[in-house]
Amino acid sequence: MPMSSPLLITASRDLLALKDEWLKNLEVERRLSDKTSESYERDLRQFFHFMTDYLATPPKISDMKNVRPSDLRAFLASRRRDGAGARTLGRGLSGVRSFLRFLEKRGLANASGARAVRTPKQPKSLPKPLAASDALRVTNQDLQMVDEPWIAARNTAVMVLLYGCGLRISEALGLKTNQIGTKTDILLINGKGGKERVVPLLPIANEAIEHYINLCPHQLADGLLFRGARGGKLHAAIIQRDMKRLRSALDLPDTATPHALRHSFATHLLAGGGDLRTIQELLGHASLSTTQIYTAVDTDRLLDIYQKAHPRA
C-alpha cells in the first residue's frame, strides 16, 4: 500500500516514519486488506490533524507519550461533530489504540489512557437475507433482465456462486479461469487479508459456469473468469446495477443485493441444520462472533413463523 506523503499529514517526520512502520507491521502480522489499511491510515491522519489543533503545533513522538483519556474523548467528540457514525468512531479509536500499543512496545508511549476509553456503542444491524424462493428466482437464468444470452449466463453464474458458495462479490469476480477445472467440486478462495479457504462447488454452480464459458465471446484462457461486455474486467458495480433491475422486475425489496445472497447462504444453511463452525469456515470469517449474528436472524424467522402459524399466538 502506498504511504501517504508527509505533506498530507500534520505531524513531525519521525512520527510519520513510525506511522508507516506501524502500517507495514499491521499488514504483515494481521494480514489486513489494502482497504482496511487505508482506513486505519486515514483514521490516524485525522487524529494527527486533531492533535495539531488541540496542541496548537504538529504532534511529535513526545506528545504521544502520555495521551490521556480526555484527549481521545475530545478527538471522538470532534469526529462526531463532523458527522462520523458509531462504526467509524469505533474503528478510529481502534486504530489509535493500535498505534499507541505499537509505540508502547518500543518504549515511546503509554497506551493505558487509550485502553481506558470506552468504545462507542455500535448499532445492531442484522443481515437481511432473501427468502429461499426469492434466492432461487434470482439465480434463475430465464429471469435475468439482460438481452445478451452470454451476459445473462454470466450474471447467473455469479449469483449462483454468491448464493451457492457464500462468496463475497469481490471473491467471485476475482476468480481465474484456471481455478475452474473440469467438473471440479471445490474452490480455493483467497479471501480477506489473504486468508485461503476451501469451499464446495455445487454441481449446479459448475453447470452455470460451464454454460457461461461456452457462450462467452471473449478469450478466457488463463485470465479472469468473468468479463465485462467488452471483454475487460467485470466490476462489482455492473452486477449491482443488474441486480437492481432484477429485484425491481421480481418485486423484491431494496435489501436484495448481491451481498444479501451471501447472507442468504449462511442463514439457509443454519436453518437447515448447519453448525456455526462449519459456516464460519465456509464464509471465511476470522471470528466465530461474526458468524453468530446469523443465529439472531434465524431466531427472528422462527418467531415470525410461530406467530403466523400457532393457533395460540
Rank of each mutant, 00 (worst) to 15 (best):
K192A: 10
R197M: 08
R154D: 07
R137I: 00
A221D: 12
D254E: 15
A132Q: 12
I189D: 05
L250I: 05
L161V: 09
I238T: 15
M159N: 13
R197N: 07
A260K: 03
L126A: 03
C216T: 05
E207F: 04
T139R: 00
A153R: 00
D134T: 00
R245A: 13
Q179N: 11
L173F: 03
T139P: 00
S248W: 03
Q144E: 04
G223M: 08
H235G: 14
G174W: 04
I186M: 14
R227G: 02
E210V: 09
I189K: 01
T255C: 10
K233F: 10
I151Y: 12
G232D: 07
L215V: 04
A249P: 02
L161K: 02
Y163V: 06
L187T: 01
R262Q: 02
A208K: 01
D147G: 12
S264H: 01
A249F: 11
E196F: 15
A260V: 07
F265A: 02
L220Y: 07
E148H: 12
D222L: 09
A260M: 09
L126R: 04
I189G: 05
A237D: 15
A135G: 05
A221R: 13
R230W: 09
T184F: 13
V199H: 06
E171R: 01
V158Y: 01
K195V: 10
P258F: 04
S125A: 13
L188D: 11
G194R: 11
K183M: 09
Q219N: 15
G231V: 04
F265V: 06
T156R: 12
A236H: 05
L252P: 10
R247S: 07
D147I: 09
